[in-house]
Design a protein around this nucleic acid. Structure first.
Lengths: 297, 297
DNA sequence: GTTCTAGCATAAGTATATTTTATCAAAAAC
DNA sequence: GTTTTTGATAAAATATACTTATGCTAGAAC
């Protein structure tokens, strides 16, 4: 019984093309690495399925029928499309194609990752990269859902099926403009932060949470007057003389170099921030693996 | 053991697409008319063959991986190309596509077939027609080689695997311009053809052979002074008063109507020409079958 | 919490395709 | 003529596709 399938057997199509190209069943069999009866039978099956003769059997010579000539380009197209599919899969393996989506805490996304991503893009120009910034919680959720394959975040409790590796070590620092009375100091006592207008990121942001819990542990209070949702805004406010800021040191590295902002540690306080790479234990996407490898080194 | 095949299984591709579209293995199975384990297994096989996960299994939910998203359009393209192939084959069946190549004796090709072919083209605009004119021998050879699927020729000995059917009955006639002394006559005695400059087609042409053998049978001789390879040239010469022509009656039908040429029978001579349709006994090309049907009716 | 349910994965069995080996027949070469 | 080449066919072996039966896990209902 002939099963009515929605498409032709691609192997048979390949055989068809090869017989046309080689001009003989035997040579086609050789070229395809199969036996001659196999080729014969594929042709017979294909012709039966189509309901048309593809070859005119003149003696022991095969000549394409009109129908055969007519279907030839379609067959070629179909075989080629299937090959393209396989090639695409192999290209993904070789990083000549594909995409990577990763998530990162805002600080990392804005001040650290661009350099790496640019380099990655230079090495693998065909890979499309999507960078999403968000909270640790949100990114953890995205990881579990498989929406992102790599995250750079601070403190995250262990996730089933994921590993982590330290990526970047940073600390929170106080920033002031060069004209500020504290500008020449290296450190500042935490109590004195109550004396000045303090500019920090919003309470939801990890920056604030690190700061808040450190003050709490020290039995002190913190009373910011400005909350921003953006490090650049903080810097801007400080530059304009609106107050004293607290930011991650990486955020102001260029400003320190230029000299338009001064950095101070907060005396006796441990305000380190550790950023981790979080990624699925078992490798999946070659592009994601390569990017992780680059970030981990 | 996993056989390393050059392409993906198209059924698996279809399953892949369907799972993506339906968003669930179970619904895809339903929509494809197969069971859920069948779908699961196709996905597993395809993923194994590619070496990439296509779906991220988050709980009981399937989400496309980046790789899956990336390969999706390729898979679509491949499946579509295969469907196109089948559609093309079906279109040939419905005469919405295809080609026909036929051969005909020159007289038929020039003076009779165009009308039919125009009508056929009107009925089936997508069919490409190629008309080749040539000698009976040549066309018989082309038929056997499968180069043409239909021929309209005079006398041909029986060909193995081919049938014939009468298509057109014609006769050779003498033509003269209206001013010619014979212009008012209906018939002319064969002997008198020796008195005038006679214009006929070249000895190789069937027209001449029919004429020659008829004269031979009657014990007469024929002595043309002009040989042409083209009926139009014969007519032209006659119109110019260069002599008396002998042509197939169909050739001069329009001239007779207009009145610029007169037609005479050759008395006592049987100069009928029978044109036959010759075609393979077993039908192959639907377009060729349809054309033959039209010509036969 | 506990049980229930929905939904995918897996295993084993069966039917169907695919491919091979062995053989035949016919055309081409000698 | 005989031999060689080449394609078709039959039967057997193998691989593949699909099924039924069953297990497993996460979310839903209780």
């Amino acid at each position: 019984m002939l099963e009515r399938r929605p498409f032709p057997n691609p192997q048979a199509l390949r055989v068809f093309l090869c017989v046309v190209q080689e001009g003989s069943v035997g040579r086609a069999a050789l070229s395809l690495g199969m036996t001659q009866p196999g080729v014969s039978q594929h042709l017979r099956t294909l012709e039966a399925q189509l309901g048309h003769a593809l070859f005119h059997r003149q003696g022991r010579r095969l000549v394409l029928t009109k129908t055969g000539q007519d279907l030839l380009p379609e067959a070629r197209r179909a075989v080629q499309a299937l090959e393209e599919f396989m090639k695409a899969a192999q290209a993904i393996e070789r990083l000549e194609r594909g995409r990577v989506e990763l998530g990162a805490a805002t600080t990392m996304a804005v001040y650290v990752l661009p350099r790496y991503l640019t380099e990655f893009k230079r090495l693998h120009p065909e890979i499309r990269i999507t960078l999403e910034s968000g909270s640790s919680e949100r990114l953890a959720q995205r990881l579990v859902q498989g929406e992102i394959e790599l995250a750079v975040v601070e403190a995250v409790e262990h996730l089933e099926g994921f590993e982590r590796k330290l990526f970047y070590e940073d600390e929170l620092v106080v920033i002031v403009p060069p004209e500020h009375p504290w500008a020449k100091r290296e450190e500042i006592e935490p109590e004195r932060l109550a004396e000045v207008p303090l500019i920090v990121r919003e309470p939801r942001a990890m920056t604030y949470r690190v700061l808040g819990s450190a003050f709490e542990q020290a039995g002190l209070e913190i009373n910011p007057i400005f909350y921003t949702d953006n490090h650049e805004v903080t810097k801007r406010l400080v530059l304009e003389g609106a107050g004293v800021g607290i930011v991650s040191s990486v955020v102001v590295r260029p400003n320190v170099k230029v000299g338009n902002l001064r950095v101070l540690r907060i005396k006796g306080m441990e305000l380190r921030r550790l950023f981790w790479l979080i990624y699925p234990t078992e490798a999946g996407n070659p592009a994601a693996d390569a990017l992780r490898e680059m970030l981990a080194s």
